[in-house]
Amino acid sequence: AVGAGGPVLAQGAELEPTSFEDITNYCNYYEFGTGKGDPAENAHMLTTEPWSVKIDGLVERPGDYGLQEILSEMTVEDRLYRFRCVEAWSMVIPWNGFELADLLEMAGVMPEARYVAFETVLRPDEMPGTRRNVLDWPYVEGLRLDEAMHPLAIMATGLYGKPLPNQNGAPIRLVVPWKYGFKSIKSVVRITLTEEEPPTSWNKANPREYGFYSNVNPQVSHPRWSQAEERVIGSGGEGIFGRLSVERQPTRMFNGYDEVAALYEGMDLSEYF
């Protein structure tokens, strides 16, 4: 169900995709361990079939939606997006996915709904990292409804035209390219429309360092490191020191996706970080 030639938003043409190998071997997915290589090593334990997503809260048609049922209704497109981690590294990832807005419309958003909450699957038997309370499991994330409805926000089901590897959040994950990577919650099992701002995992763990919005913003430092620049994974050159000379490039406001700026008009983004 991978549609080639869909609209490539946000200056896709100029971007050089990160290699499949790097995208799938350098991951943050703490449910499988805190090391960058742990998810690639452990995520094979996760069963992704069958899979369903519970959509509930302020929706007209709540229920458990099977993944195949969802995919049969959605148009899967290619989206080449920059991906900026809060740890100041970045990649360029060719996702395959559909717009989150389409999924929300399928369930029917009620007028009172103002936020969207997401939840990652929690299976301690299949997720060795969850046996320690590194975070308060299950992993949860959230968006304001207008953010969720923005056409750049997608639910990804694949990358490089292949089914999403487990370590990258199979079988279905959120991708919000103008926010730090941890907002793009993986292996989603539940989507809840709410009236109140939902709790989010990293904000719960350390509210001083991780805000609800977490928009990519070079002017607002993480308390422990600068966000002004990023290391581009896989950008090293050839030769002995090639891999060890990773390029640093300036980080752009909203990760370069200026079209979302209108969502935050009138907000002090150093307060709502």
Partner: peptide, 15 residues
């Protein structure tokens, strides 16, 4: 190992 790729895609951080 870092230079040859055995430490993964981000060898600077790994080292």
């Amino acid at each position: 190992q870092g230079a040859s790729g055995a430490l993964g895609p981000e060898p600077v951080e790994a080292l």
